[in-house]
Deep mutational scan, measured.
Amino acid sequence: MAAGGDHGSPDSYRSPLASRYASPEMCFVFSDRYKFRTWRQLWLWLAEAEQTLGLPITDEQIQEMKSNLENIDFKMAAEEEKRLRHDVMAHVHTFGHCCPKAAGIIHLGATSCYVGDNTDLIILRNALDLLLPKLARVISRLADFAKERASLPTLGFTHFQPAQLTTVGKRCCLWIQDLCMDLQNLKRVRDDLRFRGVKGTTGTQASFLQLFEGDDHKVEQLDKMVTEKAGFKRAFIITGQTYTRKVDIEVLSVLASLGASVHKICTDIRLLANLKEMEEPFEKQQIGSSAMPYKRNPMRSERCCSLARHLMTLVMDPLQTASVQWFERTLDDSANRRICLAEAFLTADTILNTLQNISEGLVVYPKVIERRIRQELPFMATENIIMAMVKAGGSRQDCHEKIRVLSQQAASVVKQEGGDNDLIERIQVDAYFSPIHSQLDHLLDPSSFTGRASQQVQRFLEEEVYPLLKPYESVMKVKAELCL
Results as ranks from 00 to 15, higher is better:
residue 6 D to I: 08
residue 29 V to C: 12
residue 125 R to V: 09
residue 262 V to A: 15
residue 322 A to I: 14
residue 393 G to D: 10
residue 208 F to P: 00
residue 386 I to D: 01
residue 129 D to G: 13
residue 466 Y to T: 15
residue 295 K to G: 00
residue 316 M to D: 08
residue 47 A to E: 00
residue 214 G to A: 07
residue 103 A to C: 12
residue 319 L to E: 01
residue 424 I to N: 08
residue 274 N to T: 12
residue 180 C to Y: 06
residue 400 H to Y: 05
residue 273 A to L: 07
residue 241 Q to D: 00
residue 386 I to L: 04
residue 232 F to A: 01
residue 467 P to I: 11
residue 172 C to N: 06
residue 13 Y to E: 08
residue 415 K to V: 08
residue 396 R to N: 00
residue 190 R to V: 11
residue 108 L to E: 01
residue 87 D to G: 01
residue 369 I to H: 04
residue 267 T to W: 01
residue 447 S to K: 14
residue 233 K to P: 11
residue 302 E to C: 02
residue 7 H to D: 09
residue 460 F to S: 03
residue 340 C to P: 00
residue 72 I to N: 09
residue 67 S to L: 14
residue 412 S to M: 10
residue 28 F to I: 07
residue 56 P to W: 07
residue 30 F to K: 01
residue 54 G to P: 03
residue 237 I to L: 12
residue 375 Q to I: 07
residue 257 S to K: 07
residue 233 K to S: 11
residue 384 N to I: 14
residue 256 A to T: 09
residue 313 T to G: 12
residue 39 W to E: 06
residue 389 M to S: 07
residue 417 E to D: 10
residue 458 Q to N: 11
residue 334 S to L: 04
residue 259 G to A: 14
residue 405 V to H: 12
residue 110 A to E: 04
residue 197 G to A: 15
residue 429 V to Y: 07
residue 113 C to T: 05
residue 93 H to N: 14
residue 459 R to I: 12
residue 52 T to C: 14
residue 20 R to H: 00
residue 353 N to A: 12
residue 51 Q to K: 09
residue 442 H to K: 07
residue 357 N to P: 02
residue 340 C to Q: 02
residue 34 Y to V: 06
residue 181 M to V: 09
residue 220 E to R: 10
residue 274 N to P: 05
residue 217 H to P: 11
residue 35 K to N: 11
residue 170 K to W: 02
residue 111 T to N: 04
residue 186 L to I: 13
residue 309 R to T: 08
residue 348 A to E: 07
residue 312 M to V: 08
residue 291 A to F: 04
residue 422 D to W: 11
residue 28 F to A: 09
residue 202 T to C: 11
residue 112 S to D: 01
residue 215 D to Q: 15
residue 104 G to Y: 10
residue 336 N to H: 03
residue 249 I to C: 07
residue 61 Q to E: 10
residue 57 I to E: 00
residue 348 A to W: 02
residue 207 S to K: 01
residue 377 L to Q: 00
residue 316 M to S: 13
residue 432 Y to D: 09
residue 205 Q to T: 07
residue 356 Q to A: 14
residue 143 A to R: 05
residue 134 K to T: 15
residue 403 I to M: 11
residue 148 E to C: 12
residue 149 R to E: 12
residue 251 V to D: 02
residue 195 F to N: 02
residue 307 L to D: 01
residue 330 T to F: 01
residue 190 R to K: 15
residue 171 R to G: 00
residue 37 R to Q: 15
residue 30 F to E: 02
residue 404 R to C: 12
residue 227 T to W: 06
residue 155 L to F: 06
residue 255 L to I: 10
residue 299 M to C: 08
